[in-house]
Design a protein around this nucleic acid. Structure first.
Lengths: 156, 156
DNA sequence: TACTATTTAATTTAATGCAATTTAATTGAA
DNA sequence: TTCAATTAAATTGCATTAAATTAAATAGTA
């Protein structure tokens, strides 16, 4: 059923998420500037602080980013001295990303960023947790769709 | 309070929104390709279908985009024949964006896109409405912060 | 072994996004 | 009225993003 409301900008969940994502990133920017990181570099470091010694594609799967985005980004993190990029001796197609000591230490400077952000938003942990769950559920649904779309494409 | 969990990627609301936004955009892409629009061009057209004869800055305020993004995007929509860009005779600093007849007619091809998306996600209108409200509340909080940050900056 | 298919990164191309600067036009105050 | 301040777009530079192509390495098969 389509009404006049259907195409209203304010009724689009996707636009709300899209705009919110960009505005949230702006909120992080001044905090991340102190670490010399962009937002994408920050989430990449988050992933690596959980687990390093991973390939570009493993990292990409966690971050939903492909090598076209990650390769230049990882080269910058390497140039900044936070990580190393090494070809896997066993399979030289793989590039293994590892933290340097400097990259590991950067975590100490980042550890209070999430709290600062939540404070800025006056969000309680409960609200935050609830919204997080909702986003993850939506993400799961989107993933099902993009995966099945990819499979259809792959079957052709 | 910081725990080991604090910096976990899966606990970051911001990352959930950031990743979800990109994945949702991917879901729109094939539908929008039929109209020859990118996602950002699509939301710009949504805004213009609600109201045209607006300035670049008015449009930017609705979309949370600045002239650095909008100017080249609007030139492309103009080149595609969907809009016109005209200097305001009363105040030549302003560029007024208006739909062409072709741009107005494009709406008919777009009108079933939101429904297709919701179907793909198996989302009920209730779930959708609920999430939308939550995102808008978060957005309002973020806006408060970015505005006050801008004011602080402006006061210096 | 030789050849093909697959896999993984890297590269290329095009489109955002944002910050900072520049340009042009207008406004407002001395 | 003249000039400084403000405003609106455009421009510039840098950093993502995604899709498509390329290149290198490996795996699988005849």
């Amino acid at each position: 059923m389509q009404t006049d409301q259907t195409l209203k900008l304010e009724n689009q969940i996707c636009f709300a998420i899209y705009a919110c994502s960009r505005e949230l990133t702006k909120l992080y920017r001044p905090l991340l500037q102190e670490l010399g990181l962009t937002y994408t570099q920050y989430v990449t470091m988050l992933a690596l602080w959980e687990q390093d010694q991973v390939t570009v594609s493993t990292l990409g799967a966690k971050l939903y980013l492909d090598s076209g985005t990650l390769t230049p980004l990882l080269k910058k993190l390497e140039a900044a001295g936070h990580i190393t990029r090494t070809r896997d001796k066993n399979d030289e197609r793989n590039v293994v990303i590892a933290l340097t000591e400097q990259g590991r230490q950067l975590r100490e400077q980042a550890v209070d960023i999430p709290e600062k952000l939540l404070c800025q938003l006056d969000a309680s942990p409960e609200e935050g947790g609830f919204l997080l769950t909702q986003m993850q559920e939506l993400m799961a649904r989107v993933q099902q769709r993009t995966n099945s779309a990819a499979n259809i494409k792959g079957d052709e």
